[in-house]
Amino acid sequence: MLNPKIGQYLKSSYPADIVDALISAYSEVLRNYRIERWKPSELDAGHFVEAARRIVEHEIFGTTTPLAKAMGSFSPAVLSKYESATGDEAFRILIPRVLFSIYCIRNKRGVGHISSISPNKMDATFILSATKWVLAELVRTVTASNPDDAHALTDAILERELDLIWDDGESFVIMDNKLKAEQKVLVTLYKRDRYSIDEIQSLIGYKNRTRFKSIVERLRSDNLIDIVQESICKISPLGIREAERIIENT
């Protein structure tokens, strides 16, 4: 579930119905990826591309195609039209090229049409990463005046997707019950950094607060995490390596 601030910021700059369509499509891409439904995940990316193209057009042309009207195919000529416009190169070049790559995979790799290549995790992972980047870039531009929100919201979008963790916005479950509490803390912070001590304790279901604080302090003394602003935990480069070792061995 996306932070509501993302939609609020985007709607301050772009038509609300287009923002809602963008967020809905992104949420479906993410949801289907998490439950390993590769074809629906990649199909929903087509809707994401259509909504994001409308935002690009709104930004560089000042007007865009209404949702009720079809946009037509995303061709190299359309890409060239965007690139030859004036304005921020993120909207003229970078975002359109990423969207075009999503569009091509969605249309030419057995998703939208029959192909020798069936929908698969490799393509779905690329599409998910690309949609995350586009959404984060859009959020970065509309939160430029608020660096704290920009950092927090883009980090939340770009958090890692781990098979070890079931996190659908309502449930957060570390699927391997054999992991020790220290290991659960590290993989939780590896997925999304900067949780508070209380948040981590709740997420991993550790009951004894006193013992849990001792676990966190031990991780800190081993340079696997740091604690800032009194209670916010950050995973260190050493902690990242240890979390990746844990993930590889589960």
Rank of each mutant, 00 (worst) to 15 (best):
S202F: 08
E217H: 09
I157H: 02
S84W: 04
A16L: 05
S171E: 14
V111L: 07
T125A: 02
L138Y: 08
L43F: 14
E57G: 07
N107W: 08
Y206Q: 09
K207A: 15
L30D: 08
L2Y: 02
T64M: 12
K132T: 04
N146L: 07
T154L: 02
A21H: 11
V173W: 09
I60W: 08
R109Q: 08
D168N: 14
L164P: 05
D222W: 05
V173E: 13
F91C: 08
Y206T: 06
G46V: 04
A21Y: 09
E36W: 13
Y14M: 00
E83C: 09
K213Q: 13
A77H: 06
V185A: 14
P40W: 07
A51G: 13
I165Y: 02
V185K: 11
I93E: 07
A85N: 15
T86P: 00
F172Y: 15
D17S: 02
E42H: 01
Y195F: 06
V139W: 01
Y9D: 00
T86A: 10
Q183H: 09
G205A: 10
I235S: 10
A124D: 04
M71G: 15
D167Q: 10
I227F: 03
R220V: 01
T143H: 11
I225K: 09
A25H: 03
P76D: 12
P147I: 10
E161M: 07
I232M: 05
N223A: 12
V134L: 04
A130H: 02
I114H: 10
V142W: 12
I114Q: 10
L43P: 02
R218F: 11
T64N: 11
K11V: 02
L219W: 04
H58C: 14
S196M: 10
P147M: 05
F212C: 13
A156G: 03
I114G: 12
L158T: 03
N107A: 12
E137M: 06
E182T: 12
R97P: 06
G110S: 05
E244P: 03
A181C: 11
E199P: 10
K5P: 00
R140W: 10
I240C: 14
V29E: 04
F61V: 03
R53F: 09
M1Q: 05
M122F: 13
T210D: 13
Q201D: 06
S202P: 00
N177R: 15
K5G: 00
V19F: 00
G72L: 12
L158K: 05
D20R: 07
D168L: 05
V98S: 00
T63S: 15
T188L: 06
V19E: 02
Q8W: 01
Y9C: 00
N32C: 13
S145G: 13
M1E: 05
E57W: 09
E199I: 05
V185L: 14
S118E: 15
N208W: 06
N249V: 15
D44C: 08
T64Q: 15
Y33N: 01
V78R: 06
D168Q: 06
L79Y: 09
I197N: 08
E242N: 10
E182D: 10
I204D: 03
E89M: 03
L43D: 06
